[in-house]
Design a binder for these strands. Structure first.
Length: 473
DNA sequence: TGAAATGTTGGGGCG
DNA sequence: ACGCCCCAACATTTC
């Protein structure tokens, strides 16, 4: 008789789950487990990913219920993964251990140690559940990793990605013995002050909800995705990012459903291709993180190691106004308030607010990345790191140093009627459609809204001068 | 997956 | 009728 430990991490789904699939094929009893590796005093403090922890709480609740309906009970533990798994193996006499791989440096180090330590007691098997293909399978001719997205994506598409998603199992047989578990509440992923309740009104969590959201994307949005995704007032994006982060959807499922839709609707090709290339950017993010692990906290482009960002005591007040959506720049404040209220921000606006912080305000990208990590329900180390470095100009395929967004022009272009701004900055509701994009100036008669934090023209000039140093290498 | 400065062109007003 | 100026509207270059 074989007993399999199935370790859930960022793959909180039953369908298209390779580790689960293999465990069911090889074991007569399955013990699903989730470990709170960052709880207590180890590693990151909870506050550093507060919003996504709220999502995680609800997602674990969903997984618990779905597993129970199939016949298994989710075991919750807290602590270092290695010791938790060692203990579980001894308690249960498990013969196998299964997981889907992760690609961040800490995760890889942890998993490698487990493989070494548990190999004697357990048959260990890991799978790809998070990516279309593994990072090490795509390299340039000279066997070094790509640093340019289009070349990377072309090479990846050329691999052929035809594998069909795995089905959801009908039944998962749990162990005959009782396995002790923490209660979900003991993991304390919900905050003491319940700001999470309002935030979660914007979301539906779990695997069924993920597939509903996918249906909405395919049936209502993907055909017009290319044309509509850039307008933050519209529901033109997929909004699947938290589902991808926690794995209630796999990129392989997205790929398959989108291709199936395309086969029936050839006219939607442009939209489908555009959406799939966004999945490609996610692949690229994981790929870069795997090949260049120092990206987590340092610039990919080493020339930026000596870049003269402002010092913390100098930028602290500006950073705070940016975080609170009180910069006096309408599109910026709209975005930052949407983020704080809903745990999500439209991608176009993410680029605009990030450009302001890193270029106009010369605040190091790490400070912005940290705030996004704390406030986004989709907070994802790989995507977040790549995105911020891309905007700051120190990443792969990065925006050149001179590409500085003008938030007023961006606003006029992508929120022409001011709907997005009015939704999130009610102080400006009564401005006309021309005025609503403009920075708050002295004597413009608007009440209860701050004067602009920076002069856009002067701060642009300052950034050009300072970033110009990088150009010379 | 820019913005701003600079260059070019062509229509209309006007002397 | 003609040249001149102005200035959109677009294109190109530079940061």
């Amino acid at each position: 008789m074989s007993i399999g430990l199935l370790w859930f991490r960022q793959d909180l789904r039953l369908a298209d789950n390779p580790a689960l699939h293999a465990a069911l094929a090889e074991c007569s009893q399955i013990i699903p487990v989730f470990i709170d590796e960052d709880g207590g005093n180890s590693g990151l403090q909870p506050a550093q990913s507060a919003a996504s922890h709220v999502w995680l709480h609800h997602n674990l609740l969903d997984l618990q219920q779905r597993l129970k309906a199939k016949g298994a009970t989710l075991v919750l533990r807290r602590g270092a993964a290695l010791s938790c798994l060692q203990q579980l193996q001894q308690e249960t006499g498990a013969t196998h251990l299964y997981w889907n791989r992760r690609y961040d440096p800490r995760g890889i180090a942890c998993d490698t140690a487990i493989k070494q330590q548990l190999a004697a007691e357990c048959n260990l098997r890991s799978f790809n559940g998070a990516l279309l293909s593994e990072p090490w399978t795509v390299l340039k001719k000279d066997e070094t990793p790509y640093r340019v997205f289009t070349a990377f994506w072309k090479a990846k598409l050329k691999q052929g990605l035809a594998t069909l998603p795995l089905p959801e199992p009908a039944r998962i047989t749990g162990p005959t013995q009782r396995v002790s578990s923490l209660n979900l509440d003991e993991l304390a992923y919900l905050p003491a002050v319940r700001w999470d309740v309002a935030m979660m009104q914007h979301w539906q969590v779990g695997e069924v909800a993920a597939h509903r959201a996918l249906d909405v994307l395919i049936e209502q949005r993907i055909a017009t995705y290319k044309a509509r995704r850039d307008f933050p007032a519209e529901a033109g994006t997929s909004q699947l990012s938290p589902h991808l982060h926690f794995g209630t959807l796999s990129p392989r499922q997205l790929w398959h459903y989108a291709q199936a839709y395309l086969a029936e609707n050839p006219a939607a090709e442009e939209g489908v291709r555009c959406f799939l290339s966004e999945i490609g950017w996610r692949e690229f993010a994981y790929y870069l993180l795997y090949h260049f692990p120092h990206m987590v906290d340092g610039a990919l482009d080493q020339r930026f190691n000596v870049f003269p960002w402002r010092e913390a005591e100098d930028y602290a007040a500006d950073l705070q106004r940016w975080q609170q959506g009180q910069t006096g720049l309408p599109i910026i404040d709209a975005g930052m308030r949407q983020l704080y209220a809903t745990g999500w921000m439209h991608n176009r606006v993410r680029m605009i607010v990030a450009s302001l912080l890193t270029k106009n305000l010369l605040v190091p990208w790490q400070a912005g990345e940290q705030w996004f990590r704390a406030t986004l329900v989709d907070a994802d180390l790989a995507s977040n790191t790549m995105g911020w470095q891309w905007v700051a100009g120190c990443g792969a395929d990065a925006a050149p140093y001179f590409r500085i967004f003008n938030p007023v022009l961006q606003s006029e272009k992508f929120d022409k009627a001011g709907d997005y701004i009015r939704r999130w900055v009610p102080e400006l509701r009564d401005r006309d459609n021309k005025q609503i994009h403009q920075p708050r100036e002295r004597g413009d008669g608007v009440k209860g809204y701050p004067l602009a934090l920076v002069d856009l023209k002067a701060s642009r000039q300052r950034a050009l001068e300072r970033f110009g140093v990088i150009k010379k290498g």
